[in-house]
Amino acid sequence: MAAPRGAWLARTSVPAHQLHIVSGKGGTGKTTIAAALACALATRGRRVLLCEVEGRHGITDLFGRPNAADTTTEPRIARTSAGGQVHGLEIDAEEALMEYLATFYHLGIAGKALDRFGVIDFATSIAPGLRDVLLTGKVYEAVRRRQKGRRDSYDAVVLDAPPTGRLARFLNVHEAVSGLAKVGPIAKQADSIMAMLRSEITTVHLVTLLEDMPVTETTEAVAELAPTGIQVGSVIANRATPSPLANDQLELARDGKLQLDLPMLAQADRTALAEEFVGEASRILAERECRERLTSLGVPIVDVPREPLGVDLTTLSSLVESLTHQLSEEVNA
């Protein structure tokens, strides 16, 4: 295979999976986790592609590169401290359809005219499932480049996928295109996409918070994905509250029976702090209960502590480190 651009450091290994699909309930931080995972996978000399499909400009917002929205150039959005690079791609269904028409039907200029009259919008919106096949098709194309030994190939592709509630439908492209043409390139490509998603190069990461609703959705997503044959590689418990205290101590604190021995504080502050700790202890206990529910899924759990400063480019590195460490077999640095 020809050495891709930027491979000035010898690559020692490739990640365990080439395609990483990241999903989660809305508000759990899946876009941030996807970005951090892309950075974690980008170790020495590796090239990683971070894709988003929902038009939320999450990549641009986090990395602040104005060109990340340009689907044609896949600009580099980050160089990692480990010596790899992350590229960004915002996949747009309408553009993907145009590209598709150009590739398979040589409809270059006619395709543009169709777009002007809204036919492309019509087709991608009206045909159930077409949009999803176009989006996953583009990811498929990016993943396949390595097998074809292309210069613009990637060692790993990270997909910031739709939320868990829609994930199974999004990935189940077979089902999705069943209402479309039974023959022709779309149907054929759907088969290839499905085969890739079910193969050992693909893994799904479900991001959750340690709260009732997100954990319930995660459980449902695992159940919905099971019949599709797509593997769930990890559940990422985001914004977890770390605590060295044992449950019985936390229970005492929650019930207001724990005295805080802090003579340096004024009596009023000691009381207020103890009251605040009642709530904290109760939250930590609730989180632990949720985590317990997650362990029953039989999927490895990655714990990501909450970041009080919020995640931006400066705090992203600690998140990357945490993922690199806990997903060391995935990253395979």
């Binding site: 006619a110 005219a113 169709l114 036919v119 479309l180 043409a181 022709g184 779309i186």
Partner: peptide
């Protein structure tokens, strides 16, 4: 689109193939 009919019949045929004429 009637003015660009040459390319257009091709387009319609294509859309039919992509979407399926039944749909």
């Amino acid at each position: 689109l009637r003015f660009m009919s040459a390319g257009f019949s091709l387009v319609v045929a294509t859309m039919n193939k992509v979407l399926g004429s039944q749909l």
